[in-house]
Simulated scan of single mutants.
Amino acid sequence: MKIAKVESIPLRIPFTAGGRSDEAVWGGANLQTVDSLIVKVTTDTGVVGWGETFGFTAVPVVKLVIDTILAPEIIGRDAAVLDRLMLDMQRKFHIFGRSGPFIHGLSAIDIALWDIAGRVSNKPVHQLLGGGVADSLPCYASLIRYSDPGLVRENVVRAVEAGFRHLKLHEIDVDCVRAVREAAGDDIEITLDVNCPWSVREALDMTEKLRPFNLRWLEEPVWPPENYSGLARVRQEGGIPIAAGENASTLMDFQHLLEAKAVDFVQPSPAKMGGITELKKVFALANANNVTVMVHTFYDGPGLLASVHASAALGGPGALVEWRYFDLEAQLYGDAIIPKNGAIAVPQGAGLGLEPDENVIHAYRVH
């Protein structure tokens, strides 16, 4: 079974989010559309698999790498020899960087090939990864950055009323976090992702202000994200559990992160760090270091499904799925993937288990 065709498909889907967004790392202020890049891989036997890479403003450069470098290289290769193929690609193109467009593009292709493997074997990906008994997994609603206590309060109430018992904020203002805790009450779990804004000293000063709000974790408080020793110091002295890893790209990155004892929760991002092939290795590495994996899942397409399958199979009883709390104009999988009462269904069909809506692809494809 050979890889016959690789097609990268950019999508742009409008969304709302319960109020104006503030400046944030995934886009400018008042962001109104989500740009994503999905990948369709077809074998010479006609089997199709779908993958996804991290989107937003990174889409054009990743598409260029896939179309002009990665796709020509893998066409004709055996679709079933996944580990070897991914290792070959990483070795061949390592001189172009061990992070960014090349690894992002490989991630999407890898997810698509796991989808194909499941379809050929007539098993869902979570069974290929070793099983998983859960029919659904709890989600945390991952809100945009509002930088307005009133707006964030309104949307926290909206998420809690929709059934979410776990929330993620992207605020960097203490007043916004205070407003969320007051609105949500003590029974709702709150995490805070600040997207690497502070020095170690600034982060420690902020943990003192944030401790009263009983955060489940503080995510990526230190700039730069690869400052693992600084992150470890914040973890040791700050009094709040630390999460990081969405910006780590290779297994060695995660090994260094864990060796530094920098995190309580490690957050591999399958659409950025090598796909399911690398993700399963991070689970094993984290288990060996007694660190909990919380897969980064800021996607709505095959990248989300990959995270759900991996979390169901490998994540244990405490696994949570990140749900991007956007009101999208259209969903790639319709209602099948939308959480109900704060939980997302684990697809039981072959491969990733769901088929993208071709009408949505046609309507929102960027040409």
Rank of each mutant, 00 (worst) to 15 (best):
A4M: 04
K5N: 15
E7S: 10
I13L: 08
R20S: 14
D22S: 15
A24I: 05
V25G: 05
V25C: 09
L31C: 07
L31I: 11
T42P: 01
T43E: 05
G55F: 03
F56A: 14
A71E: 09
E73W: 07
G76Q: 08
D78S: 13
A79H: 05
A79N: 08
L82H: 03
D88W: 00
K92A: 15
K92P: 00
G105A: 06
S107E: 10
D110K: 02
D110E: 09
D110H: 08
I111D: 09
A112L: 05
A112R: 03
L113T: 09
I116N: 08
V133W: 04
D135K: 12
D135M: 07
R145V: 12
S147M: 07
P149I: 12
G150T: 14
L151N: 13
V152M: 04
R153L: 03
N155W: 04
V157F: 00
R158H: 12
V160F: 03
L169V: 10
A179M: 04
R181Q: 07
E182W: 00
A183P: 01
A184C: 09
A184K: 02
G185I: 10
E189I: 13
I190Q: 04
D193N: 09
D193F: 11
V194I: 15
C196T: 15
C196F: 12
P197V: 14
S199K: 00
R201Y: 05
L210K: 03
N214P: 00
L215R: 03
L215F: 06
W223V: 13
Y228E: 02
I242T: 09
A243G: 09
G245Y: 02
A248I: 01
L251F: 05
M252S: 13
D253Q: 03
L258A: 07
K261W: 00
K272T: 11
V282K: 02
A284W: 00
A284I: 10
N287K: 10
N289W: 05
N290V: 14
V291Q: 03
V291K: 01
T292R: 07
T292Y: 00
M294K: 08
T297I: 06
F298C: 11
G301H: 11
G301P: 00
G301R: 03
S311V: 12
L314D: 11
G315Y: 05
P317W: 07
P317T: 12
V321C: 08
F326T: 10
Y333D: 10
P339G: 05
K340F: 01
Q348N: 09
E358A: 15
H362T: 14
A363M: 02
V366W: 03
V366N: 02
